[in-house]
């Protein structure tokens, strides 16, 4: 086992240092697909999160509970549902989206939406409610007050962004089922790892897994550093508050 991992590590170093075109291609595709998916999920996730975090309305806890429960949505289940949805025999079949990168982006965006909603809503809830009131007494509109609160919960938004991206780029079920793992078209890191393992190319599979880990940890580390940098300037934060 150790031998295979060492061999995989050496293969990874070799593939990265020589800029192996296939590896670069699937890594870039994986980052672009998952990055787009996260952006797309913010589009509908942020408004829902703000609504849940700022407003009190009947059945709010049910909606919130739904998104919390969906955090654990198994990727294969979502993949299967989306396959049936995108299939030529399915409701949006005529759009011919099955086995395209677009379908993968939409699928992953839906997958990570609960992360955006739950994390951001919780972050907003934990912001001192006086901030919104304060902003309003200073003459801010409803939307401006909301934005002020959102700015205060930027930590939560950032955490939602990184967690979403990490979940998206590391998942297999959705991209495999709606993408089909087609070479030069819908093949990404996780689907290649699964395929190469099936083919018995263990070293290559481990190398790709290492690349995936490097991408995920680099992103997480960068975000933590940015946050530390920001948090080390409390004076400015105070200034923003007043």
């Amino acid at each position: 086992m150790v031998n295979e991992i060492i061999e995989g590590f050496l293969t990874a170093v070799h593939l990265i240092s020589t800029g192996d075109p296939t590896v670069v291609e699937i890594s870039v595709r994986a980052v672009l697909v998952s990055g787009s998916a996260v952006l797309l999920s913010m589009l509908w996730g942020l408004p829902v999160a703000m609504l849940l975090g700022l407003k009190r309305f009947p059945c709010r806890f049910i909606v919130k509970g739904f998104f919390t429960a969906m955090l654990g949505m198994p990727t294969v289940t979502l993949g299967l549902l989306l396959y049936l949805f995108f299939s030529n025999a399915g409701p949006v079949g005529p759009l011919r989206l099955l086995y395209t990168p677009t379908a993968m982006i939409i699928g992953q965006a839906i997958l990570v939406t609960p992360i955006t909603v739950s994390f951001v809503a919780s972050a907003i809830e934990s912001v001192d409610p006086e901030i919104a009131d304060l902003a309003k007494t200073l003459g801010a509109s409803e939307i401006q007050a909301s934005i002020a609160v959102l700015r205060e919960s930027s930590r939560g938004v950032l955490l939602a962004l990184t967690t979403s991206f990490n979940r998206a780029i590391a998942e297999l079920g959705v991209v495999l089922m709606v993408g089909g793992n087609i070479a030069h078209s819908t093949r990404v890191l996780t689907t290649t790892i699964a395929l190469e393992t099936n083919k018995g190319e263990i070293a290559l599979a481990i190398a790709l897994a290492i690349i995936l880990l490097v991408i995920v940890s680099t992103l997480t580390l960068t975000v933590s550093l940015i946050q530390r940098h920001k948090m080390s300037r409390p004076a400015e934060l105070e200034k923003m508050r007043t």
Partner: peptide, 22 residues
Amino acid sequence: WAVLLVVVVVTSVTATAYYLEP
């Protein structure tokens, strides 16, 4: 600002999808 943000997200996602399309 909100509209601008939406436009930027939609444009970049569409552009990426188009770029990735076989």
